[in-house]
């Protein structure tokens, strides 16, 4: 563009502000050379150029540059401060603006309050319903279920068989004791006849019918006191010490023979319950506590069903074996008593 008397001032101002490009600056210089009366003296424009950018101290320069020019800029800076987006210069800009305009201090406080804080006392009340159950490995479940089933079966089997067993043993003991008492009475009667003693004897049969064995409450198998009393209170002649010794031995050995099998039976019970059955349920409980509610997939359910059928078969076989063992055990007890009384 050509520089004329009408527009040279605008070019001059741009030049003084440093906004004129090289080409225009050269054009302006040429124009001023042609019209030297228009050129300003050096002391008339001494400080215009340095004020603009570079020669001010950094702090003052920053502050001058930092002052927001509008309310919108203040809002941007305030929100930027809350959001943590400002750099150092921008922060200084905001601070100086607030310092110079105290009414914006309150505005800035209100901006700070727009930061929302969650109320942590509000809690979703049905959280547990959202949780999904754990899927347990299938093999341990089957093993535990199998062990539990066998344990329950044996427990029930023993519980139903034990009283009968005890009752059977009691009947055998009762019968054998009765026979032995009769034998003893017979020996005594014979002695009476031989010695023609005048001392009276107690009728052993009178109280014998009351002697029964009670196994329902006590684990230890003991003979009723009446049975012993019938034996021990019989007025035995002093001379018949052999018979008295025999009776004492019978009492002692009988007690030992009777109690030993029961102790064995208790041990069996203990092993079955404490080591197998209760531990199994403890394990189940621990697993349940650890894993929560057990939920199985359809495939796993089918697998469990198949395994359960197999187990059912195995349990049936085990049942037969267990019954056979119990019968053998009962028979061995009866045989022991028979052998004992026969030997005596």
């Amino acid at each position: 563009m050509k520089i004329t008397f009408d527009n040279y001032e605008a070019y001059y101002l741009d030049y003084l502000e440093g906004n004129l490009n090289q080409q225009d600056a050269e054009t302006l210089s040429a124009f001023l050379l042609l019209h030297p009366e228009l050129q300003l003296l050096e002391d008339e424009l001494p400080t215009l150029a340095p004020i603009l950018e570079t020669q001010l101290p950094t702090e003052i320069h920053t502050k001058i540059k930092a002052i927001p020019t509008s309310e919108t800029e203040f809002s941007e800076l305030a929100i930027g401060k809350i959001e943590g987006l400002l750099n150092e210069v921008e922060q200084a800009k905001l601070e100086s603006f607030i310092e110079q305009n105290k009414r914006y201090e309150n505005e800035f406080k209100l901006y700070k309050k727009t930061r929302l804080v969650a109320d942590t006392t509000i809690i979703y009340p049905k959280k547990s319903a959202l949780l999904k159950g754990r899927i347990l490995p299938i093999k341990p479940i089957i093993t535990i279920l199998a062990a539990a089933s066998v344990g329950v079966f044996i427990y029930l089997n023993l519980n139903t068989n034990n009283p009968n067993t005890k009752q059977d043993v009691a009947q055998v003991i009762h019968r054998q004791t009765h026979q032995k008492t009769i034998q003893t009475k017979h020996i005594e009667n014979q002695n009476e006849k031989i010695q023609l003693s005048s001392s009276p004897t107690t009728n052993l049969n009178s109280k014998h019918s009351d002697s029964t064995l009670d196994f329902s409450n006590n684990e230890e198998l003991t003979l009723p006191s009446s049975t012993y009393s019938n034996l021990s209170t019989t007025p035995v002649p002093e001379k018949d010490s052999i018979i008295q010794t025999q009776i004492s031995q019978i009492k002692i050995e009988k007690t030992q023979q009777i109690s030993n099998p029961i102790i064995t039976s208790k041990e069996v019970n203990k092993n079955l319950f404490t080591s197998s059955f209760s531990e199994t349920f403890d394990n189940l409980k621990e697993l349940k506590d650890f894993f929560g509610i057990v939920k199985l997939t359809k495939v796993q359910k089918e697998e469990i069903l198949a395994e359960t059928n197999k187990l059912h078969e195995r349990i049936s076989n085990a049942n037969l074996k267990a019954i056979t063992l119990i019968e053998k055990y009962k028979q061995s007890v009866v045989d022991q008593f028979n052998a004992f009384f026969t030997s005596k």
């Binding site: 969650a118 942590t120 509000i122 809690i123 959280k127 959202l130 949780l131 999904k132 754990r134």
Partner: peptide, 21 residues
């Protein structure tokens, strides 16, 4: 997986509830 899903329930169910509320 199951465990991570349950962790999401434990950690964020309250937050989503507050958000929805």
């Amino acid at each position: 997986k199951l465990a991570e899903y349950n962790n999401l329930v434990e950690q964020h169910a309250d937050g989503i509830y507050r958000f929805a509320l």
